[in-house]
Design a protein around this nucleic acid. Structure first.
Length: 578
RNA sequence: GCGCGGGUAGUCUAGUGGUAGGACAACGCCCUUCCGAGGCGUUAGCCCGGGUUCAAAUCCCGGCCCGCGCACCA
């Protein structure tokens, strides 16, 4: 089954790496034995291992080292959530495409504009209107059959008619709708962050480009809730002097520090800049190359319905500049919408540093008079009076649809001084949203290199040591039993220390080194003749192919110190066969 | 979704209507050797469905998948 069928390497630079990723077990086409289905991939053993490690690195950055927590909410959402979020708004939208110029219009808008006619947003209604009025495109071409363009997967929850639900198109909504509980958890103190790593789904019209556009994909999102007037971060200084590549919404490129970008108003505020800096550090640490990384600001007509400013991290791949992270200021859009549609007010009480004394007039109803005069309406009248801030001699109120006049002897106006301790605010949210599949692929592409050893081509995946799915390979020089059993012993000791280790006995030693170079294994341990003499083995470094001898008893500590650093292998043992 | 090109072992490829071949890889044995060594052997393939034909990998139609362009990506 040849699914990732690829053109010759000189035509498509990604073909070489894609071929390797499939052959060596990083990613596979899903549903392959049934002919496959575009937009879905299987994470094969090595790809799964790599993605998990990238996830953990992300956790370290965006959960552990922030005032953040991680939660996990359902991948299916009920309809109400996406009506509020705005994602379902398009669910009744019908699109029409011109068969001549290829332009796509929202059918209801187009019909209204051209025919001044309200049309039901259904495929059938739009189709009949197009037929009846012989509606043409502005270019004169005729329209193709109208179609829905909702990108959410629909489902039914429960048996029979059930309840309509959607597979979530982003993990974020699960966080917004749990906001009340979350702010409680953080004892109502801003700012705080809530992260979620998980699957999301978009029924893409035309998935393409390998793993770049999937219908089911992995997101890591952080929703960082902050006070609307305090879009700052205490650790901004950490990134303020970093020089980054920015492309602003006018397509102007800048190589400037984040501090300067904020000062010059290119980036809207410090908090966005902070997350741009942090995202950059994360991507570099994952193995993205700085020269293939830039941050591009969304143009005004490009932003999602919820965003007020948005910066994408883009990585240069063989497909071009590809968005891997979106860092958006979603303002209070989501919390406001869920407040409007849901049953809770999603706001937070923010105390002032000092209570503020406010003088104001207060209207105090005189119940002893109101009661006898208005009987069952008295209570409602009192409530209405208390809401008012100004009062003349007479007040006219509408109670239960009936107008009543309250004269001044039924209330008193008092000048009171109140202490106001704080205010309710709807937090704003800054959202760095990561596409883990794209990042994983980007890391692979940026790590994949061809070099030459002894005049022969060598394919090597220069993954960061701590991200390699197979960290150590233990290789007996000869496939004799005494060599093999020592190799197995070393391997189980490494595994016992949490180091992912493989043993490979088959083929010549050179062939085995190349196998592990190709999948990015940073270190090979070789059991050779000398091992029987002085109980030492060699450790070979993937990137330089150089080897050092190390005593068996020091293998675990040595490997650990190498994997979690970028130390030169020559520092940890005596150079072998220099 | 539209248009163009493509689909033969794990990978690459030969095969224009008549029994599907090779290279590399993988696996086993031999060899015992520090950078894809050698010998012997083994596994393994015409994307799916229909049509034309005595006969289809090959011709025709439809689908699926892959690549590219356009559109879409809230």
């Amino acid at each position: 089954m040849k699914i990732f069928k690829l053109l010759p390497a000189n035509l498509h630079p990604m073909s070489q790496i894609m071929e390797m990723l499939v052959r060596r077990g990083f990613i596979w086409q899903s549903f392959e034995i049934y002919g496959g289905m575009a937009g879905f991939i299987d994470y094969a053993p090595l790809g799964n291992g790599l993605r998990r490690k990238i996830e953990n690195l992300w956790r370290e950055f965006f959960v552990v080292n922030e005032r953040s927590v991680e939660i996990d909410t359902p991948t299916i959402g009920i309809e109400e959530v996406f009506i509020a979020s705005g994602h379902a708004e398009g669910f009744t939208d019908v699109a029409i495409e011109c068969s001549n110029c290829g332009k796509v219009f929202r059918a209801d808008h187009y019909v209204k504009e051209k025919l001044n006619l309200e049309v039901d947003p259904t495929v059938e209604a739009v189709e009949s209107v197009i037929d009846e009025f012989n509606l043409k495109c502005e270019c004169g071409g005729s329209f193709k059959k109208p179609e829905h363009f909702n990108l959410m997967f629909e489902t039914i929850i429960g048996p029979g008619k059930g309840k309509k639900g959607y597979l979530r198109p982003e993990t974020a909504q699960g966080i917004f709708i749990a906001f009340k509980r979350l702010s409680d958890y953080f004892r109502d103190k801003l700012p705080f962050g809530v992260a979620q790593i998980g699957r999301a789904y978009r029924n893409e019209i035309s998935p393409r480009q390998g793993v770049i556009r999937l219908r089911e994909f992995n997101q890591a999102e952080l929703e960082f809730f902050c006070h609307p007037n305090e879009k700052k971060h205490p650790s901004f200084e950490r990134y303020a002097n970093e020089v980054v590549t920015l492309v602003d919404k006018f397509d102007k490129e800048h190589r400037i520090t984040l501090r300067e970008a904020v000062e010059r108003g290119i980036i809207a505020h410090e908090l966005l800049a902070y997350f741009i800096g942090k995202t950059r550090e994360f991507l570099l640490k994952a193995g993205i190359k700085d020269e293939g990384l830039r941050f591009r600001q969304h143009k005004d007509d490009e932003r999602a319905h919820y965003a007020v400013d948005c910066w994408d991290a883009e990585v240069l791949l063989s497909y071009g500049w590809i968005e891997v992270v979106g860092i958006a200021d979603r303002s209070d859009y989501d919390l406001s919408r869920h407040t409007q549609f849901g049953r809770e007010e999603l706001s937070i009480f923010v105390p002032f540093d000092e209570p503020i004394k406010v003088k104001k007039k207060k209207i105090i109803p005189n119940m002893t008079k109101l009661g006898p005069a208005f009987r069952d309406k008295a209570k409602k009248i009192a409530e209405e009076l208390e809401k008012l801030e100004e009062a003349g001699r007479e007040i006219k109120l509408v109670i239960d649809g009936e107008e009543v006049t309250i004269t001044s002897d039924f209330f008193e106006i008092k000048e009171v001084e109140e202490e106001v301790y704080g205010e309710r605010v709807i937090p704003h949210v800054i959202e760095p949203s990561f596409g883990l599949d794209r990042i994983t692929y980007a890391v692979l592409e940026h790590s994949f290199e061809t070099d030459y050893v002894d005049g022969e081509e060598r394919r090597v995946l220069r993954l960061k040591r701590y991200l390699a799915p197979v960290q150590v390979a233990v290789l007996p020089l000869l496939s004799k039993e005494d060599f093999v059993s020592i190799a197995e012993e070393i391997a189980s000791e490494l595994r016992g220390n949490g180091i992912y280790t493989e043993v490979d006995v088959t083929g010549s030693i050179g062939r085995r080194y190349r196998r592990f170079d190709e999948i990015g294994t940073p270190f090979c341990i070789t059991v050779d003749h000398q091992t029987f003499e002085d109980d030492t083995v060699t450790i070979r470094d993937r990137d330089t192919t150089s080897q050092v001898r190390v005593e068996r008893g020091r293998i675990v500590e040595t490997i650990k110190s190498l994997i979690f650093s970028e130390r030169d292998i020559k520092e940890v043992g005596q150079v072998f066969r220099a």
